Amino acid sequence: MIEPFTIDVPQADLDDLADRLTRTRWSDELPDVGWDYGIPLARVKELAEYWTTGFDWRKHEARLNELPQYMTEIDGQRIHFVHVRSARDDALPLILTHGWPGSFLEFEQVIEPLSENFHLVIPSIPGFGFSGPTHEQGWGVPRVAQAWAELMSRLGYDRYGAHGGDFGSGISRALAAVAPGKVVGVHLTYLPGPPPPGVTFDLDEEDTRRLARIKGFIANRPAYQALQATRPQTISYALTDSPVGQLAWIAEKYTEWTDPESEISSDEILTNVSLYWLTGTAGSAARLTKETAGIAPPTCAAPIAVAVFPHDITLAIRPHVEHLFDVQQWTEFEHGGHFSALEVPELLAADITGFFAKLQSRASTAAAE
């Protein structure tokens, strides 16, 4: 059963948030260390002050409720999703999957341009936002992909595309593996990982730099990833009890992983942070990292497109990717980072549209022959 869903946060929850923010017990900070020890105190205080005195959740709640949202249950888990049908009856369905610390909110700015050519399905990953929390073990990338396949089938879509970044990249590739006859192509913005084993590649200077960056990332696992992959329950107590703790945990990434020229507003950051806080899903969202740790990267026989944004966490290496996947489109952008749908929505939407237009044109030509 699929039912319409409306966001309606109890006023008591908003009052509790405001009370907690006014009673924040602030950490000290070493002088002149900048970002070397983590997100600076001044930045967190700035965002917290705005969260307390200027940010209006009800305004954003009303705006989000203009989107057609739904709720269903798959594999015993509540699944929240946005479903926007294109004015074109023959539009290709496209499922968009977010990552951490994102949410369905990050795709808001690409809905209008993409819905010109696609029927859009934008779910919240189990454990995230209104799809959370999860209530049992096993909700890693493969199981989420199985849920997405069921969701698309339930919506009546038997041929569709997929897009994702961060965890959404792995889920989109896994979806192509579990629904090979249905996923016509996969568009990705993030392809982390070591080089394919047992193969030697002749890399140019830029790819050599990218490889060094990937190896450094693997050798020095970031603190957030280590904690969420090993002790998500432990970190969940702090994030679930302290709104400023949740704020700092997420807001840090909106600086570290983005293009310095990008303009992600305080309202955009705080709407996403508020979603995590008001749904109490810091811990269940973190569990996805542990549930997926150690699982082999998903295979994907479907044609793929890779969009590389220069300020992403790591940058994909084309020879490595082409060894593993059927790469039909590769785009190197001059601007943008990990949150491309927020940072450069027009570039991302155009790249997605162009890729699937090519696939459909080739399919039409092949059918005519």
Rank of each mutant, 00 (worst) to 15 (best):
T255L: 07
Y157A: 01
A296T: 12
D204Q: 03
W26E: 15
S27Y: 06
V44M: 11
R88N: 14
V9L: 05
D32W: 10
I111G: 12
E206V: 13
G354Y: 12
R58F: 09
Q109S: 15
A149P: 06
A293M: 14
D241R: 03
T289Q: 14
V44R: 12
V183A: 01
K59S: 14
L14W: 03
E322S: 13
E322N: 13
V199Q: 02
P40S: 00
P133M: 04
F217H: 14
S169I: 01
G156I: 09
A350Q: 06
G102Y: 14
G140H: 07
P123W: 09
W26G: 06
E116L: 13
P123C: 03
T314E: 14
S131R: 12
M71S: 00
F217L: 10
K45P: 01
L21P: 07
G193C: 13
V110Q: 06
D259R: 06
P319G: 00
P180W: 10
L105A: 09
P93T: 06
P194I: 02
E112K: 09
K182S: 15
A341V: 11
L211N: 12
A307C: 10
G168E: 00
K290E: 09
R221L: 15
S169Y: 11
G170C: 06
K253T: 01
E106G: 14
P31H: 04
D267W: 05
L191I: 02
F167L: 05
W100P: 15
I125L: 03
